[in-house]
């Protein structure tokens, strides 16, 4: 099952003796701070996790997949995430060992 805010809150209660209210508020504000920083167009570096940044996308041609009609995808600002070293290191261990041999 996916890790959710409720799981994180329970973890803080168990591991760091937070009250339920403290845990819930800290988690809510933690994500809100990231959203606010990105809204301002800032790059956010969280050591142990990775970097979040915003990128400007130009208008590009797109299609309505249902009708096949060409419609422009408007210019927009999007959020990108790049995993940090520590996270990449942990994910690397997941590589399936049953690699097909040639």
């Amino acid at each position: 099952m996916a890790l959710t805010k409720a799981n994180l809150a329970q973890y803080l209660i168990d591991q760091a003796q937070f009250s339920k209210q403290q845990a819930v508020e800290l988690i809510e504000l933690f994500f809100e701070e990231i959203r606010t920083a990105l809204e301002r167009g800032e790059t956010l570096k969280l050591s142990g996790l990775g970097n979040f940044q915003t990128r400007e996308k130009k208008q590009r041609p797109g299609r309505n997949p249902k009708t096949g009609e060409v419609v422009p995808v408007s210019a927009r600002r999007v959020v990108t995430f790049h995993a940090g070293l520590k996270l990449r290191g942990e994910i690397e261990k997941l590589v399936p060992s049953d690699i097909e041999e040639e």
Partner: peptide, 21 residues
């Protein structure tokens, strides 16, 4: 608390899981 949150997200992904907020 912040370090615990970050570590939990990382370890969940490290086990092949997913995180949804």
């Amino acid at each position: 608390g912040v370090n615990l949150i970050i570590n939990q997200i990382r370890s969940c992904l490290g086990k092949g899981g997913r995180v949804e907020v």
